[in-house]
Amino acid sequence: MADAAMTKAERREPMAAAIFANEAVTVRAAAPASRLSLRAGSEAIAPLSSALGVDLPVRPKQTSTTGSRTAMWIGPDEWLVIDAGEADLMAAARGAEGIFSAVDISHRNVAFLVSGTGAATTLASACPHDLRLTSFPVGAAARTLLAKAEVVLWRQSETEWHVECWRSFAPYVFGLLREGAKDAALA
């Protein structure tokens, strides 16, 4: 098997082509991204922010973005860091001083982008969280539920949402978003 060592596995993203669009909403799969689940006490926030090049927000529901990199407050010692590129976030975090946990979850999660005037309504078909701008402003993020699936919602603009879920939940989440999008165009 001389060629075995040369055999390189390829990445497969079966949901990558998922798309649904109508006059009110477009739901589509986000491109693969690098993701880190970051856990740390308060003393490591500054060194991690500097190592990652993005400030770890310290208030609930907040996010901060620098370039292609966004850090989302998920819990008082938990952040979801997403880099839209192929950056090695693990390597970047490893350089930080202090006590923390960085775990690569680039493949654990996938994301859908929900955009359009009916985007919030689409999510509201299955999400009990108050998604009005008063309680979910632009730039906010929160872990919550979409029917039976746990998701992280990130509002990128008034009409654009990034919906993060575990990989095996993606067909279910897409199905819900499609139903929600259909109804968002009606009422």
Binding site: K61, T144, L145
Partner: peptide, 18 residues
């Protein structure tokens, strides 16, 4: 469905999350 105030998230959230 109850609304429960999470002392860490500092807001009321739907019971389904708890």
């Amino acid at each position: 469905m109850l609304l429960i105030r999470c002392p860490y998230c500092e807001e009321e959230r739907p019971e389904l999350e708890f």
